[in-house]
């Protein structure tokens, strides 16, 4: 490789996800020399965003995925990565330009996966970490319902492929035998009151063994493998998810939230329990007796007053 090419390769390798935007490439003045790379790597264009350096093997995985996934648009454009900071961050970068609905970012490992309140989400190899983009033409006020919908899609995916019956903890944590196996976090981008993109991030613990979890969360976290004793193909799970999500999403766009809400309630373990909700401003206790049409948790306090909870950590008390 000549010097200039080496410089380009180095810049790619240093960048998050080995991605460089068009602007960054122009700055380096190297768009003209992008053709020839070593045999292990290929250059892949990422829509209008820019390019990335990708291992040939991953490119094949990607192609096989899009050819076999049973959907119309969810997961029809995918980008597989070995390691990225977070799939959510990459997906957000892509939404700065034109991006197809259903585009999905999948990583084998995240170095900076995040949960609610910027909590670290341990996302080492063995799990399924992905983010995808939808562009529903719905009022912003109803967008939070998509996070409950996503939880239902994960439950159906697992139930369809495995002898397990996951439960949902409000709003969208997925539990196996009381331990968290999946977390979902969603970000919305809007301009002038219209949704431009909803980026849904899912972290599913698949094949991690006990040692993979830090000691402080071992009692609370689990993986599919730990609950079944099997090693499960994450790609099959992902394909299943794409299918389930797309079905529910179409149903949602056509008929609204009601049917999704029913499915959610059937799998929910929070309803009917005495719970403690830890919010930004403190804790409240009460009986969780349902969810509102918006998806908010309804708590009845001892004195009979009803609270709507929109943001909280829920614990059984």
């Amino acid at each position: 490789m000549n010097n200039q090419l080496q410089l380009v390769v180095d810049s790619f390798l240093k960048a998050d996800g080995n991605m460089l935007s068009m602007e960054e490439l122009k700055e380096k003045g190297c768009i003209s020399s992008l053709d020839q790379f070593g045999s292990n790597y290929r250059l892949e264009q990422m829509g209008d965003y820019g390019y990335r350096l990708i291992k040939e093997q991953l490119l094949f995985t990607q192609q096989r995925f899009t050819e076999t996934v049973q959907t119309e648009f969810i997961g029809k454009q995918v980008y597989f990565f070995d390691t990225v900071s977070s799939t959510q961050r990459i997906a957000k970068k892509l939404t700065m330009n034109q991006v197809e609905e259903g585009t999905m970012i999948i990583a084998e490992e995240q170095t900076d996966g995040r949960g609610r309140m910027a909590r670290k989400w341990h996302s080492q190899k063995g799990g399924l970490w992905f983010s995808f983009i939808v562009k529903p033409e719905i009022p912003i006020a109803t967008a939070p319902q998509l996070t409950l919908l996503t939880a239902v899609a994960v439950v159906r995916t697992i139930e369809d492929l495995l002898p397990l019956h996951p439960k949902i903890k409000w709003p969208n944590d997925i539990l196996l035998h009381g331990k968290k196996v999946c977390g979902i976090l969603t970000e919305l981008q809007a301009t002038d009151g219209n949704i431009e993109a909803v980026i849904i991030g899912v972290g599913l613990n698949v094949n991690q063994q006990k040692e993979a979890f830090p000691e402080d969360i071992r009692k609370k976290a689990t993986s599919i493998s730990l609950e079944t004793g099997m090693i499960v193909d994450p790609i099959s799970l992902l394909k299943g998810f794409c299918f389930q999500f797309e079905q529910l999403y179409k149903l949602f766009l056509q008929h609204g939230f009601q049917q999704i809400k029913n499915m959610w309630e059937q799998s929910c373990e929070t309803i009917g329990k005495e719970v403690t909700a830890t919010t930004f401003k403190g804790t409240v206790k009460g009986e969780a007796f349902g969810i509102s049409d918006e998806g908010a948790l309804l708590l009845k306090e001892k004195d009979g007053s009803v609270l709507r909870i929109f943001s909280a950590d829920i614990d059984g008390s």
């Binding site: 939070p144 996070t147 969208n172 969603t186 809007a190 930004f280 998806g295 908010a296 929109f310």
Partner: peptide, 30 residues
């Protein structure tokens, strides 16, 4: 944020912030 959906609100206008009307962590209505 609601139900773990985080909505980053843009200013939608150019100018200067003169007042913040709500407290951090407060529930806001539509």
């Amino acid at each position: 944020e609601a139900m773990k959906l985080f909505n980053e609100i843009e200013a939608d206008v150019k100018g200067e912030i003169v007042d913040c009307l709500v407290e951090d962590g407060q529930l806001v209505e539509y």
